[in-house]
C-alpha cells in the first residue's frame, strides 16, 4: 500500500508534534511537588499514629482519663456495696441463700412419711 500525500503530511505533522511536546513549567512543577510533599507528610503522620502505647489506646477507647476516673469511682462503689451493703439495701447474699433454702424444702419428697403411718 503506498502512502497517500495526505498521510505523508500527517506523519510529518506527528513528527513535528513529537518534537514540540510541552515541558512542565516551573510553576506547575512546584504545584505538583507541593501536593507530593503534603501527601508524604500526611502519610508519615498516619504511620506514626498506631505507635502510641497500649494503655494510651485503651484510654482512647473508653474516652480518655476523664472517663477513666468516673469508671474507677463507679466500680469501687459497686465493690463496696457488694462487700458491706448499707442497711437500706437488701443484702443480696442473704437473699439468694434464703431463696435456695426455701426451694430445697418445697421440693422434698415426703411421700415415704405417709406410707409409714
Amino acid at each position: 500500500m503506498t502512502m497517500t500525500e495526505d498521510e505523508k503530511n500527517l506523519d510529518e505533522m506527528f513528527a513535528t508534534a513529537r518534537e514540540n511536546r510541552p515541558l512542565l513549567s516551573d510553576d506547575l512543577t512546584v504545584r505538583i511537588l507541593t501536593d507530593a510533599e503534603q501527601v508524604r507528610l500526611n502519610q508519615i503522620k498516619a504511620a506514626d499514629r498506631p505507635r502510641r502505647s497500649y494503655w494510651a489506646r485503651v484510654l482512647d477507647g473508653i474516652g480518655g482519663w476523664h472517663s477513666f476516673g468516673g469508671l474507677v469511682a463507679a466500680s469501687a462503689a459497686g465493690v463496696w456495696i457488694g462487700f458491706a451493703a448499707p442497711d437500706f439495701l437488701p443484702d443480696p447474699a442473704t437473699y439468694i441463700y434464703q431463696q435456695e433454702a426455701g426451694l430445697a424444702l418445697a421440693d422434698l419428697d415426703t411421700s415415704f412419711l405417709e406410707g409409714a403411718e
Binding site: P22, L24, T29, I32
Partner: peptide
C-alpha cells in the same frame, strides 16, 4: 515528576 509529568501534560 520530571519523568512522568511531561507525558501527562503532552
Amino acid at each position: 515528576t520530571d519523568r512522568l509529568g511531561p507525558r501527562c501534560l503532552s
